[in-house]
Simulated assay, not measured.
Amino acid sequence: MKDYRDIIIRPVVTEKSMNLLADNKYTFVVDKKANKTEIKNAIENIFNVRVENVNTMIVKGKPKRMGKYEGKRPDRKKAIVTLKPGQKIRLFEGM
């Protein structure tokens, strides 16, 4: 089993993810190999909250060019975590 902090990579701070905070939903970039149960356990143990639901999606990397060289940004996995009513993550409160 991985360490919980290896599963959750970073929070996603965008306008769309900030609008989801009103519905008690928090967005994180997570390890691509993590499943929903591992993500739920990691969020509950790191932030001491109760998770109601986890939705995940794979975001494909965009193609990028540097002059004549072509490449692509890496793929990543996002998780939208819904907390039980009355629960909050303090990390997002000041934003």
Rank of each mutant, 00 (worst) to 15 (best):
I43G: 02
R5P: 03
K60R: 15
L21G: 03
A79C: 06
K64N: 04
I80P: 00
K36G: 09
K88I: 11
D3S: 13
K68W: 11
P85A: 12
N19K: 09
I58Q: 03
T14H: 01
T37D: 09
P85V: 13
D75T: 11
P11F: 13
L83S: 04
A34Q: 05
M95E: 09
V13M: 14
G71L: 05
L20I: 07
T82N: 04
L20D: 13
I9K: 06
Y4W: 05
T14L: 09
K2Y: 12
D6W: 06
R65Y: 10
T82Q: 07
L91M: 10
N35V: 12
T14Y: 12
V13T: 13
D31T: 09
K62D: 14
A79H: 05
K2L: 13
A79R: 02
F47R: 03
R73S: 12
K77E: 06
F92Y: 08
P85S: 13
E15T: 07
G67D: 15
Y4A: 05
L21R: 08
E44A: 05
M57V: 15
P63Q: 14
L20A: 11
I89K: 00
G67T: 15
G61W: 11
K40T: 12
M95G: 08
R5Q: 12
K84C: 07
V81Y: 02
E93G: 02
K62G: 10
I43F: 02
I80T: 13
L21P: 01
K25Q: 13
G71E: 05
M57C: 07
D75L: 08
L83N: 08
G86H: 06
P74V: 11
M18C: 03
E38C: 01
I9Y: 00
N45P: 03
E52A: 08
G94I: 14
A22N: 14
T82Y: 01
D6E: 15
R73V: 14
K40A: 12
N35L: 07
P85W: 10
G67W: 15
R10L: 07
V51Q: 04
R73G: 09
Y4S: 06
K60W: 06
F47C: 08
K25D: 06
V30Q: 04
Y26Q: 01
L20S: 12
T27W: 01
G67F: 15
A42K: 00
I46T: 04
A79L: 04
L91D: 08
G71D: 04
F47L: 02
K62H: 12
G94M: 10
V13G: 06
K68D: 15
N48M: 06
D3A: 14
V54G: 00
K25Y: 08
E44M: 09
D3Y: 11
M66H: 13
L83E: 02
V29S: 03
K64W: 06
D75R: 07
V81G: 00
